[in-house]
Design a protein around this nucleic acid. Sequence first.
DNA 1: ATAGGGTTAG
Length: 838
Amino acid sequence: MASSSPLPLHTTPNLNPSHSKPTKIKQTQSFKPTQKLHEENKSYFHQISSLCKQSQIKQAITLLTEMNLKDVQIGPEIYGELLQGCVYDRALSTGQQIHARILKNGGFYSTNEYIETKLVIFYAKCDLLDVANQLFGKLERKNVFSWAAIIGLCCRMGSHEKALMGFNEMHKDGFFPDNFVIPNALKACSALQMIGFGKGVHGYALKMGYDSCVFVSSSLVDMYGKCGLLEDAKNVFDEIVDRNVVTWNSMIVSYVQNGMNEEALKVFYCMRMVGVEPTRVTVASFLSAAANVEAGDEGRQGHAIAVISGLEVDNILGSSLINFYSKIGFIEDAELVFSNMFDKDVVTWNLLISGYVQQGKIEDALDSCRRMRSENFGFDSVTLATILSASAKVRNMELGKECHSYCVRNNLDSDVVVANSIIEMYGKCESTDKARRVFEKTIQRDLTLWNTLIAAYAESGLSGEALKLFYQMQLEGVPPNVVSWNSVISGFLRNGQVTEAETLFSEMQCLEIQPNLITWTSLISGLAQNGHGDRAIRYFQEMQNRGLQPNTVSIISLLSACINISSLEFGKAIHGYIIRSQLFSSLSIVTSLVDMYAKCGNLHLARKFYDTVNYKELPIYNAMISGYSLHGQAGEALEVFKQMQNEKTKPDEITFTGLLSACNHAGLVDKGLKVFSDMISEYQMKPSIHHYGCMVSLLSRCENLDEALRFVLEMPLEPDAQILGTILSACKEQNNIELGEYLSQYLFKMEPDNPGNYVALSNTYAAAGRWDEVLKLRNIMKEKKLRKNPGCSWTQIGTELHAFVAGDKSHSQTKVIYETLAWLEKEMRFTHQHNMYD
DNA sequence: ATAGGGTTAG
């Protein structure tokens, strides 16, 4: 049998378009030897073949040895079967043994096209690039099968250019790429984003009739999806008659990868309607879509479907679940999935950490990092980028620095995303110099990196420097995008440089950079914060005229601009917009609305919207409490607090700030003391300096100066100037000059240019009739060119003066009184009591 | 043939 050439090899593709399963095609294109075999050989062949199919290649090799010993002829097809068995099992060393036997058996076998092809396929499937290439290069006659193996290998190895070159070359040599080669070629096209090539392959597949093969058509859907051509992906998908799970999955994945999450969810439901059983890929992709649009119910259904379908939770499905649960804020469920996975990897850990960071649980995130390390997982660039942006978020430069040096030690700082997070961290901590040094050391300066540096300067109040960088990036050939413009503009607005901001705003439009929602929102709220509420409203209208719909974030930001300028009118305009565009579904918007009405002076409306919410959360309780507090309605504020206790909502520091300042405004000492002690003992919270401030102010105003002082002396925090100032202001009512002078000593050192302290001490002196001291202080203010703050009051002095004059029959201090009077008149046009000496 | 994680502006 050995002498004749054994092979009817197909070197032209099968053009029959009817087959939908590649396995069928494989059979029709078989290149097994067909000559008549010796009977004994035949029996061995059957035994070996069936052993190979049962993955018992070792036993098959024993039979091969037996054949050798019995001197039975060994046909090439036997080696072929054996090699095929090794391919299925990825049994590299066994395959190499067979290869050795082939070589030992001499030239016929090792130069037999059938065996040579099988060897190329074997080595290619085992990912031995060099060996496979070498054998392929030595082939005297290539064929579709060896080409397919090589092209597939190139794809797996990431050599996509080589894969496409192979596709062209085989075609040029007269071998027609079949439905095994086409999916690989398409994969290479999407990896290289070569849409033109991909379309060419599509055309070729149509011409050759391969479009009816699901493998080919599913790959086309995937390719178009990965290249962002969703229309084409959808068109191909719609044309497919026999869709399988992979086809559906490819369509879902295409939508997810292009941010069309709603569509992805819809495709999933269609797939369920048709009755196709989902796989792990289906559920994982569906969960990504659900996570991206924070579709809680849908995602949970996905989880249920995975359980019902008995899908094994592998790393990928598990991490999709963790991602989903942490994106919708159900970190406990994410933790549960995490702890039930028995094969964790870096990605799983990173997702848990990132989930904690998203929920603001920085301590838990760091704790997970420690656990991750104790279980022998190293941090990668993703871990570091996550922790770095957490450090930036909470402005913890100590932590940030630690991360930075870890990156340097482990060569992670060359990763652009990591470098970007480092720069952002230093920027948020107002260390622009450090941010810049990192920027300068980074070799790959992309647009994002520039934008982050610009934002670092802009947010630190260095708007001029930000603008300089904005020009510099253009000199270095990086054109700015909307983000860059936005940062520079909001940097100016933060500094009150309204004109500069507006100039840039019109400039960007001349350069045909379209302002987006963020541009508009920053401009509007920036103008409002700088006291141009009217112009802010006009910009808001202009924005709507141009067809831009505000989203939840911009609405909230607009409402806080209303609060900033206390403009009920602007607030009502936005409220009108909210009603018209049916944005009421969002709890955060209703909360902001309540906040706006409470702070802009319409407590009644605030309460009305507060009452419409059935399932309240902490922020809306806080908004209502602070609203009542502002209006001095402590009883109502405490009522809301009781309500939230009934609903088992845990208060936070903001809640207590509201409650304490409500008691403070209403002068309710006992209630204030009760809330304060509840905060510490019942809720185990540490009061901040602000909370102490409220108490001190409350106690000192209610003529309980000693108690207030005791509070200050016993507080675990260093008292700040504001607290001392509060007591100082109270000194006048108690006629306590001694304490006033004592506190002033500190205050004048702590904040030498705060006129409030001078005014407070002056009032104390005035209350005691010490007009000479009042004038002395006034002269110091004059020397220092200090102007009285709008909040500080001279009225006290006037009142005291009036009373003093009335009682001072001896006119012993006439001169100094006249002087004081003259000054007061000038200061605050204190004319209405001009006739008190008449 | 299909699947998971980290970056910039409000």
